Simulated assay, not measured.
Amino acid sequence: MTRLASSLGVSGTHDQLAVADIRHADAVESAIADHHRGGESVVLTGALEDAEDLTVMAARSRVRIPGLRVAVEPLPGNPLALAIISSLADDADGDSAWMHAALDDLRQRTWSGTWLTKLSHLTRPNPTVWQQIASWLPGAAFLAEHSPAPSVTTAKRAPLNALPARPGTALLHSPTDSWVVEAVLESLGSTSSTPVAPARDLIDSYGTSSAIEFVAIPEDFREAATRIAAEAVVCTACGMRHARTSCPYCRMTITSGVLS
């Protein structure tokens, strides 16, 4: 659940996932109810800064929708990272343990950043006053790293030496033919780069259409998720499988499991 691109309205489908604009609580509840009618449990993903709103919406839906099992999974990173991580974790063939294991691994190891020429709409990470002033000067450019370590650095030209190397990753980015894609690819040491349509308007997110979102996904996340899910247990309270110390659906604490 995020702030959607205008083409999706307040709810719709993006990359075969049901999506709803978190600014419209009724649309979120309707999307949850539609998914629940298919007989499935619901995993509600959203931005980390929207965690409180997600929790409230999930609680309200539990009251209004009998038998609903819903897990809230806030995710770090830019809007493109949220969409990509949600889509990759959904490739679970109904295995709730694998899905949550994938979310846990991707939450820990995914890198995301955004190249910007203006910082007026950027709040996470929060630029300094001097960076905000500098962004109004001609030729200004910055790279905002959202996760795992938020920061804002100058990025006027290649090479982008401030980026941490992340070999063994696949780089995905919002569609563009800018030089920045190759510069980020080389700095991270990713093995490939692929354009991906965003779920949220760049202007809505950053106040400019020239922003370029990047997400570097560990190529071995499926294997990592499978190893984590192998430690799964069945929750004695709700019957869902997971590999955590507390159930993502009913919050029942257990004495086994590998993740908190």
Rank of each mutant, 00 (worst) to 15 (best):
T128N: 03
K156G: 09
L116W: 02
F142N: 04
V152A: 09
W130P: 01
G67K: 10
A158Q: 12
W130E: 15
D104Q: 07
L137N: 10
N126P: 04
T110L: 02
T117P: 05
L103E: 03
G94W: 04
Q108W: 07
W111E: 00
M99G: 00
A144S: 13
S120C: 10
L116Y: 00
A140H: 08
P138A: 11
S96T: 13
R109M: 12
A141L: 07
A83H: 10
D90T: 03
L88R: 07
S120K: 13
S87Q: 10
A81E: 01
T153F: 11
I84G: 01
I84H: 03
A140F: 11
D104Y: 06
G77S: 06
L75Y: 01
R109Y: 12
R69W: 08
A134S: 14
G67S: 10
D104E: 11
K156T: 13
A83D: 12
R124F: 12
R124E: 14
G77M: 04
W115N: 08
D104F: 06
P76I: 04
L119Q: 05
L80F: 09
S135F: 09
L116G: 10
Q131E: 11
S151G: 14
L82D: 03
D104L: 04
W98S: 01
S112V: 07
D95E: 14
V129D: 14
L143T: 03
H121S: 15
V129Q: 12
W98H: 03
A81L: 00
P127N: 13
F142Y: 14
I84T: 14
L75C: 07
W130Y: 11
A81G: 06
V129P: 03
A83Y: 05
L122F: 03
V152D: 06
S151K: 14
V70N: 02
A155S: 01
D95I: 02
R69D: 11
S151E: 13
L106K: 08
A149S: 12
T123Q: 13
S120V: 12
T128Q: 05
P79G: 07
H100I: 02
A101W: 00
N78W: 00
L68P: 03
T117C: 11
G113P: 07
D104P: 00
T153V: 13
A155L: 08
E73P: 02
A134E: 15
P138Q: 13
R124G: 08
P148L: 05
K118T: 14
G139R: 12
P125C: 11
N78E: 09
I85H: 02
V129M: 12
L88D: 03
A158M: 12
V70E: 02
R107A: 07
L143M: 15
K156R: 15
W130F: 13
A71Q: 00
A149E: 15
P79V: 09
S87R: 15
F142R: 09
P150V: 11
W115F: 14
L68W: 00
G67C: 04
R109E: 14
I85W: 05
S112D: 06
A158D: 06
P125S: 10
A101C: 03
A144V: 06
T110D: 09
T154A: 15
A144D: 04
T154I: 15
V72N: 01
